[in-house]
């Protein structure tokens, strides 16, 4: 009888030992309340028009080395939709050859071009809001969505229904090589692809 008691106590000890780990967790499970707040029906939206730039330098969308091109400051219309104020940013990236991805143009960080280095700016000419800028477009990083597009320094956030205009300015790289006084790119006549990202977040 005594032996049976000892074995029962042993089994109970083992069960209690395991329950020591189960019970606190079960208690937490029943008491924890997660609150998810969706902040009403706030929605954000921006639209751009146009979204492509047809370079007309030679009538077929081609550009020359070490040359500036501009769309004009009223080129693209940004319209704020949704129902919430937003802050907007602009960022560029390296341009990649569509036929040979190893051939790239690096996006300039200081506004100077070089061999294989090109620069992009955005231009704003808005006398009504006292906003006149020509600002270098940086590359987006993990910490930065790019340069502030709007609000500009000292300006206010954009509200639903606001309309703004901006343009782009391109400075192409210096030629990869020169022959007889004429500059050439190694991959002349092929496409270079890049994207300029306009981003928005709730203000």
């Amino acid at each position: 009888m005594k032996e049976v008691k000892i074995s029962v106590i042993g089994i109970l000890s083992a069960v209690i030992f395991v329950l020591m780990f189960y019970l606190p967790a079960s208690a937490l499970d029943s008491s924890g309340t997660i609150t998810i707040t969706m902040t009403g029906s706030k929605e954000i939206s921006i639209s751009l028009e146009p979204i492509n730039w047809s370079l007309e330098a030679d009538g077929d969308g081609t550009v020359s080395a070490n040359t500036e091109y501009t769309t004009g400051a009223q080129w693209c219309t940004l319209t704020v939709g949704g129902n919430y104020d937003v802050k907007t940013y602009i960022a560029g990236e390296d341009a990649v050859c569509t036929d040979e991805p190893a051939y790239k143009w690096i996006l300039s960080t200081d506004g100077n071009n070089n061999v294989g280095v090109y620069a992009l700016w955005f231009e704003v000419d808005d006398a009504e809001h006292g906003d006149q800028r020509c600002t270098l477009i940086p590359e987006a990083t993990e910490e930065s969505p790019g340069e502030n597009l709007w609000p500009y320094p000292g300006g206010s956030n954009l509200s639903p229904g606001d309309i703004r205009h901006f343009g782009l300015k391109l400075l192409t790289p210096q030629p990869d090589f020169t022959d007889g006084g004429t500059g050439y790119f190694l991959n002349g006549g092929v496409g270079m692809q890049t994207t300029v990202t306009i981003s928005a977040v709730a203000a």
Partner: peptide, 29 residues
């Protein structure tokens, strides 16, 4: 001596004669 700036620009000009398309979507919340 000439290069294309952006492939999409070229295709936009050659394949789609009206490249001026809006770009719009909404996210909530």
């Amino acid at each position: 001596s000439l290069i294309c700036l952006v492939a999409v620009l070229i295709t936009g000009a050659v394949l789609w004669p009206s490249p001026a398309q809006a770009h719009s979507f909404t996210v909530s919340p």
